[in-house]
Design a protein around this nucleic acid. Sequence first.
DNA 1: CTGTTAGCGCGTTCAG
DNA 2: CTGAACGCGCTAACAG
Lengths: 342, 342
Amino acid sequence: MAEKAHGPEPGRASIYDIARAAGVNPSTVSRALNNRDRIGNETRLRIQRIAEELGYQPSDIARSLATNRTVTIGVVVPSFSDPTVGAVLAGIERQANDAGYRVLISTSKRDRDRELEIVQDFQRRRVDGVIIVTSHVRSTYEVFQKTLDVPLVVNGHEESRPDIAVVATDDRLSLRTAVQHLVDLGHSHLSYLGVEDRPNSNTTRLTAIQKAVLAYGTPVALTVVNPEGSSDLERGLAGYKILRSSGSTAVICYNDMTAIGVMSAAQRAGDEIPRDISVVGFDDIDIVAHLSHPLTTTRQPFYRMGRESVDCVLDLIAGGPKRHIVVPSRFVIRETTGPPSH
Amino acid sequence: MAEKAHGPEPGRASIYDIARAAGVNPSTVSRALNNRDRIGNETRLRIQRIAEELGYQPSDIARSLATNRTVTIGVVVPSFSDPTVGAVLAGIERQANDAGYRVLISTSKRDRDRELEIVQDFQRRRVDGVIIVTSHVRSTYEVFQKTLDVPLVVNGHEESRPDIAVVATDDRLSLRTAVQHLVDLGHSHLSYLGVEDRPNSNTTRLTAIQKAVLAYGTPVALTVVNPEGSSDLERGLAGYKILRSSGSTAVICYNDMTAIGVMSAAQRAGDEIPRDISVVGFDDIDIVAHLSHPLTTTRQPFYRMGRESVDCVLDLIAGGPKRHIVVPSRFVIRETTGPPSH
DNA sequence: CTGTTAGCGCGTTCAG
DNA sequence: CTGAACGCGCTAACAG
C-alpha cells in the first residue's frame, strides 16, 4: 500500500477536485459533504458519489484551521505500562468517542518538566481540552498559570487547588477502613510500604493511615518503609525484610504491585500469608483477585474516573465551571488478611 | 486556569501580532522563530523576545497545512489494558520522540471495522505514517488496498503478505523449544490452552506446537482447549478442569495471563505446580517472574519491537522499501515446569 | 538580510 | 439553492 506516496486519485483529492469534476463550486461540495442545509438533494448525492469515486479523504487539519476546533482532547499519563492507567485510558477514550471527540495521549514518565512540555505541545496542536492523569500541576502551578490557555482537568489527585478542575477518589476513607479491618483482626503493629517516586499520593496515603492509627491511641504502632527500587514490584520485594524485622504483623502497601512484590518475598522467605503477615494492596488491578492468595485491597473505579474526567473537561470546554468530582472507592476483603498468629 | 477561553494575550497571538509589535513582516517572524537562515541575529533575538512576551504558541495545524507534514505517526493498538501493549507503546513513543515525531494512539478493541475506521481517521488527520499492533489487515486487505494511502507497518504478526511491511517475533521457534523442554522432562501428553478472539495468532501458535509435537511421533499427545471467557484470565480459569480431565500433565498457554488463570485454578483445586501440572506461558510480562511460582514462558521483546516498528515506518516515509523484520524471542525456564509425577 | 506574494484545504459569510 | 470571495495561521518561493 501507499505504493506511490501521492498516486493519481488516492486520498489526496481536495474539494476543488471534486468541484471541478462535478461542475460546481467548492463551497457547494463543502455543503454536500457535511450534510448542510440549503443544498439540492440530487446535487448533494451526485457530489457525494463523486467524492467516493475520487477516494476523497477530507483534511481534518484544514478543517481545524478554518473552524478553530480540533475535536480532540489531549491526555497526559505517567506511563503505558501501568495497568491502572490502562483502565483510566479505556474510560477516557470511550467517553470521548461517544461525544465525538478524539484523544491524543502522551506519557510524562512522572517528570514535571516533561508534563509541562506535553501540555504545551498539546496547546500548539490546539487540542480543545486536556486531562492530566496523576499530575504534578500542584507543584508546578505557577509555570502552568503563565503558559496555560486550555481547559484542564486533573485526574487522580484527592485534593488540589480549587482553581483546578479535578476528578479523584477519596483514598482516605478506604484506608481508614483498611486500618479498622486490621485492628479488628487483632493487629497492633502495622506498617506502610510506600514509594518514593510519587510523593504526592504517597504522602496522602501515609497521612491517612497515620491519622487512622492515631485514632486508636497507643495500642497500635505504625512502621513506615520506603524501599528503593526501579519498579513497584521491586520495591515490594525489597521492603519485605525491613517491615518483617520491624515486628509488624500486617502491611498496607502503596498499591497492588508492591503488594505482589511483598507476597513474593514472603513466599520466598517461607512465610505464610496471612498467618505470618497480613497484606493489603491498593487499586484492585485485575489479576490480584486471582493470585494464589487473592488480595485484600481497595477497588478504584478507574474506568469510571476516566469517563468522569471527559465529562468534566467537556463541561469546561462548553464554558462550565471547574468541578471537583470525588468518586467512591471500595475496600475489598479477600484472603491475604487474617488475625496475627501470636 | 483557562480563566477566559480567549484572554487578551494568552496563547492565541499569531505571527501577525508579533510582526506588528516588532515592526517586521510575518515571514520574518516565521524565520526567526524557526531559527532559519538568512536573518539578522539581533532581529531574530528581538522577535523571539517579543514572541515570549506575547505568550506566543505556534499553531501546529496551520504549520501542517502549509508544510503538508504532521510529524505524527498514528498507532492502532487492540487495548490499553494489555501489559504487552503497554511495553510496545513505550518503545514506539520513545523511538518516535527521539526522531522528532509524535504519536497518535487509538484502540481497535480487536474489531476489524474499527481498525479500518481508525486508520481512515488517521488519514484524515494526515498522519505521516501508521503502525498497527496485532492487526487484522491480512483479512481486510482488499478494503485497505482501496482506501489506504499512507505508509503502514504491522506489528506482531509473524507472517503476512509480502506487500505489507511488518515487524514481528517468530513465535514458532520458541514454541518448538517449549515443546522440546516439556518432552525432555518426560511429558507425553501436552495440552494447548488457546483463545478464540485472536484467531490469527492463536492458530499460528497452535500450528507451531502441533508441528513440534508431530516431530516426536506417536509418543506425544496433544489436547487442544479453547475455553470461553471474557478475559484471558477467565479463559485460563475455565480451561483448567478441561485440560486436567484430558489427562495431560503439561499445558502451554496462549499467553501469561491465561497461564495465571490456569495456575490459580490449579491452586484452587488443590493441585501442585509443577508436580501435578507443568505450566508454560507466553510473553513474559513483568509480574510472572515474581509470582509464587515463577513462570516458565517465552520472553517477547515488546519494547524493542515498538522501536523497530517506528524505524520501519520512518523508512517507509523516507521512501524506503517494505521491510519484514523478525526479532528473536527467548524461552525462559523458571519454576512452573518439571517432570510429571507418574 | 528582509519584504511581497501565494498558496495549503476547508468553512463561511454574503450575494445572486 | 448555488457561486464568489475571504480568512484561518503559517511556510515558501521570489524579489528587492
